[in-house]
Design a protein around this nucleic acid. Structure first.
Lengths: 174, 174
DNA sequence: GTGATCTATATCGGGCCAGTATAGATTGTG
DNA sequence: CACAATCTATACTGGCCCGATATAGATCAC
């Protein structure tokens, strides 16, 4: 899912500037599924504009940079739908935490506990965000539920393992 | 978790060529948590070599490209551990499928069902792979369990939602 | 026997991220 | 009230990384 496609998707819902697209990508409905930075959004909008998939109107502002408001064109809408009609790229779950755990034997126990707590906190945050998210459509409802299911399961697993870890520590301390 | 760090991690377990590192990254113990392509592994090994974090010995072969076998150095091992002692990057879960679902209203019902089935099949594969994986260490056991918990929850969610979807279709067909 | 897969290294274009620059407006805090 | 932080808004750069491609003999399956 490249940044151009993400931009097109967001623009099917409403016109937006590059800045607003970035904000929207960070909202609950999107942030757990896609990401895009300024460094890729602005060039993407440039390219889309050159290809006629979006149009721009410049709103001149006195004491700020001019707002460039992008709208999706008919061609853009159909290119977006086309891209959803061809096979989707597979999901990617990259976890530096799980990778680090594979090398737990090389690290002090204290550091493991630290990583563990940081990871649990992050996951709880993500879960809570999805709990509060208000879906805008049937698809949004589904996607949020999916995320919630995954994060919830991870949290449960962490809780169970945490208990095991404490037991082991307690035994070792005897 | 950059490719250099991934290479170092793998080399803490055994010496390897670039090719072997790629294979190892694709094994059950790693593939659900990290990824790295040839296009990044070879330059990474180059850089590590120049920085003295790995050493190379060239095994000349008659009718094949020479094998370059990399070993981690003392400096490399400590650089790897250092990188695990500093705060880890957050997990990333990118899901083109969930993103596409957010736009289900723009797509034909048939296509939704298709994406749905493809996604379920993929997830089942991943789950099965983790079921069969045999952990090599306590950390490996933990990481595999974590992955299994997440994929399992997603599969459950998909099954439940599938039933709903069929109910809706059936109602619509009346 | 012949086509597919495996071993093995390497490069290139293009996509993308993180950081940085710029700059005035608004909001918050002590 | 002063000063800091955050917000709006665009844009570039260095560097990382992926996917595709090139090369080439070996081995395996049918």
């Amino acid at each position: 899912m490249d940044v151009r496609t993400i931009c097109l998707g967001i623009l099917t819902r409403a016109d937006a500037t590059g800045y607003e697209i970035k904000k929207r990508v960070e909202e609950h409905g999107f942030r757990h599924f896609v990401e895009a930075s300024f460094g890729s959004i602005y060039p993407a909008l440039d390219k889309l504009s050159r290809d006629g998939l979006v149009s721009v109107r410049e709103e001149i502002q006195e004491k700020r940079p001019d707002r460039k408001v992008y709208s999706i064109t008919r061609a853009g809408r159909s290119a977006f739908i086309d891209s959803l009609m061809t096979p989707l790229p597979e999901d990617r779950h990259r976890s530096p935490f799980a990778f680090a755990m594979l090398f737990s034997d090389l690290l002090p126990e204290q550091r493991i506990a630290q990583m563990y707590d940081a990871y649990a906190a992050q996951t709880e945050d993500a879960f809570r965000q999805l709990q509060q998210a208000k879906p805008q459509s049937a698809g949004g409802h589904f996607a949020i539920g999916l995320g919630r299911a995954a994060y919830g399961a991870i949290l449960d697993y962490l809780r169970v393992h945490r208990a095991e870890l404490e037991t082991q520590t307690a035994e070792a301390a005897e």
